[in-house]
Design a protein around this nucleic acid. Structure first.
Length: 700
DNA sequence: GAGCACTGC
């Protein structure tokens, strides 16, 4: 067994686990908790009546850590020690120690809520507070009561706030294991810079000129700033006198870089050369860069946030938390003592920074989470009172219930429907699983499978255009299909069908500027979804080819109908005079179709009266991303449903919701009730608007 | 007419 700090605490750990159902283990990076805890427990016979599960928030971690453990145990990976991640299960009947992503464990728990195959469950990296880890923490608290005699739960975290987790698990013991990091000297700047790209440049050059060798890792917020700084660093370093300092290699690092660019940070630098790695927070946890001795921390991060009252996501630059600041600093001390330059005063750190990052569960739409929990049929389960380590707001839970009701996953009393149960089995967000099930009824399952799979990977399909490549792109117009004017979903379908006709040719993706990684992922998702749908599929699951296609307009129309049913919670109505839309069912706000959309306007420049959208995102303005034209006649039943909506009933009526909150969420619906009496009235109003519209068109 | 951090089933 490796000589890691945690090994010295083996007796104490085993003794504590023996006496307690839940134990929190705090261990800094390098303590060995991820690889050693499972082996210690295995050695002491804890895997005799079931496997030892270790969850990881990320796929690569599950794979790499299990590989290490298999090596240390001197067994073949996939036998006594294995891993399970989406699309890949490398375990067997022999497996005693199983590493898996927390998402996979959640899915397993859907089919076996008692998780009887495990005698020990270790939730690793709990401090990252991923949505899935938080759900698991809540489930473990319940499970421990039911399986007190034969289940041990360990929760491991890198940060010091074990107290909170301990209180959550009725004051369970907290063990602290030292890490194996080298000391990192922290330097704070005395005043916050106006421009942190400039400040990073200055600091980096100072280090380069004055400090001994060692790579520099710089944390910025996004691609734009990273590209700016890379350019400036190149300029500045060229102007430095040759031979006066080390050579320099400047590397950008962010998620939308192609993989071959990302792996450049893993190859060691040439001799006498200092590397400048300019990165997003991808280097905070997901990627570990060796050789870093200096860290420059801007103190900011770009974070996605969901607003349940408007249904909108926004991507905002926010201050990092103390936990994140420590994590960033720690990146300087992995190989030898390092230094971290913080581009903010220590007062700001102490007084302004939050102790911990706002957990994902408080920043996301919870429709999928709530549906998942409902489908577990937990005893005495009141969704508004589910015991989370940090509860999401009531407003956010009510928004989730409302959305689930609109897509028929729960009934008006908040009980899960049989449709909802089928939806929960699909690894998709509720709108997309609802679309698939409706498509199965309408006989367009094959097409829906394709669209839904494309959407599962959408952001990684088209390469993020950088400023430098923008001009090139404009001169080479895309040869990709245009969705026949009906919107982005139809375009995604057409793109995938074309790729299918090239027999999944990788070069075709490259020629068309589609990310290979993304397209291969789509293919995997489609395969997985097909396997799940196979049991209940009424028609063919295979990708259709144009040879077999008679009438694509009719086919697209049916598919759009299925999408409409799935996106009943994401429906928008165009204003009569212009192309602004109002999302229905949310606090009213005017939104635009995203300029990247292929949705076409008619001869008068008017967009469709109604569209469904995949996502509302606020950037410079609120936009609908991925929109699909729907027909007016489909809309009335959904409007009727919106009017009937009673959030109090949906939440089970067992808890008295805050009145004010309820009124905010019902704002729009109340207005609708005030202006029109029934769906039929609504229909006639739509018809009248349509006629005015046609009359105006006739005049021209 | 715009631009998007990172994960995961």
């Amino acid at each position: 067994m490796a000589d890691l700090p945690i090994v010295r605490f083996e007796e104490k750990i085993i003794e504590t686990v023996e006496k307690n159902p839940v134990v929190v283990v705090i261990g800094e990076t390098g303590s060995g908790k991820s690889t050693q805890l499972s082996q210690m427990l295995y050695k002491r016979g804890y895997a005799k009546s079931g496997m030892i599960a270790v969850t990881q928030p990320r796929r690569v971690a599950a794979v790499s850590v299990s590989r290490r453990v298999a090596q240390e145990q001197n067994v073949r990976l996939g036998e006594e020690v294995g891993y399970a991640i989406r699309f890949e299960d490398r375990t067997s009947e022999k497996t005693h120690i199983k590493y898996l992503t927390d998402g996979v464990l959640l899915r397993e728990s859907l089919f076996n809520p008692e998780l009887n195959q495990y005698s020990v469950i270790i939730l690793d990296e709990a401090h990252e507070r991923s949505l899935n880890t938080d759900i698991l923490l809540g489930l473990m608290k319940r499970l421990i009561k039911r399986r007190q005699s034969n289940l041990k739960v360990l929760i491991t975290s890198a940060t010091l706030d074990g107290g909170k987790v301990s209180r959550f698990f009725s004051d369970c013991p907290v063990l602290t294991v030292p890490g194996e990091l080298f000391p990192v000297e922290i330097v704070h700047i005395s005043e916050r810079p106006k421009n942190y790209v400039e400040a990073s440049l200055k600091t980096a050059i100072d280090i380069h000129v004055r400090e001994p060798e060692g790579d520099i890792l710089i944390f910025l917020t996004g691609q734009d700033d990273i590209e700016k700084l890379v350019l400036k660093l190149e300029e500045k370093i060229q102007s430095l006198q040759e031979g006066s300092c080390l050579d320099a290699l400047i590397l950008p690092l962010h998620g939308s870089l192609p993989p071959e660019m990302q792996v450049r940070v893993f190859s060691p630098p040439p001799p006498n050369c200092r590397r400048f790695i300019v990165s997003t927070n991808i280097a905070e946890t997901s990627l570990t860069v060796d050789g870093v001795v200096y860290v420059i921390d801007s103190g900011y991060v770009k974070q996605r946030q969901y607003n349940p009252s408007t249904g909108m996501y926004s991507l905002e630059v926010v201050q990092i938390s103390k936990v994140q600041a420590k994590q960033r600093a720690g990146r300087a001390g992995r190989t030898r003592p390092g230094k971290c330059y913080r581009l903010y005063p220590s007062m700001v750190y102490h007084d302004d920074f939050l102790d911990a990052t706002v957990p994902e569960i408080q920043r996301s739409s919870l429709a999928g989470t709530v549906l998942y929990l409902k489908s577990l049929d937990l005893a005495d389960m009141d969704i508004l009172k589910f015991d989370f380590l940090d509860s999401p707001s009531i407003e956010s839970l009510e928004d989730a219930l409302k959305q689930l009701y609109l897509v028929d996953a729960i009934d008006e009393n908040g009980s899960i429907t049989s449709l909802g149960r089928k939806m929960a089995e699909l690894p998709l967000e509720p709108s997309l699983s609802r679309t698939l099930l409706e498509a199965n009824e309408l006989d367009c399952l094959s097409q829906a499978l394709t669209v839904v799979s494309m959407l599962s990977a959408e952001t990684t399909l088209l390469p993020a255009p950088s400023k430098s490549s923008e001009k090139k792109r404009k001169h080479t117009p895309s040869n990709l299909p245009d969705g026949s004017g009906l919107g982005d979903h139809i375009q995604l379908l057409q793109i995938y069908e074309q790729w299918y006709q090239t027999d999944y040719n990788i070069d075709w993706c490259k020629e068309n500027n589609l990310q290979v990684r993304g397209m291969v992922f789509v293919r995997d998702v489609r395969k997985q979804l097909s396997q799940i749908m196979h049991k209940i599929a009424k028609g063919s699951l295979d990708v259709q080819t144009s040879k077999r296609r008679r009438d694509s307009q009719q086919e697209y129309r049916i598919l759009r109908k299925a999408l409409f049913i799935g996106y009943a919670n994401q429906l928008a109505e165009r204003s009569i005079r212009h192309n602004g839309y109002r999302p229905l069912g949310f606090k009213s706000e005017l939104v635009q179709v995203h300029p990247s959309s292929v949705l076409k306007a008619d001869e008068d420049g008017m967009l469709p009266n109604y569209v469904v959208y995949h996502e509302l995102i606020v950037t410079s303005r609120p936009f609908m991303r991925n929109v699909c034209a729907v027909e007016m006649r489909w809309v009335a039943p959904i409007l009727a449903k919106l009017e009937k909506l009673n959030v109090f009933k949906l939440s089970g009526g067992s808890s008295q919701p805050d009145k004010q909150i309820q009124e905010v969420t019902l704002n729009v619906e109340k207005k609708e009730i005030a202006t029109i009496q029934s769906p039929e009235d609504r229909d006639s109003r739509i018809q009248a608007a349509r006629e005015r519209f046609l009359a105006r068109k006739g005049q021209k």
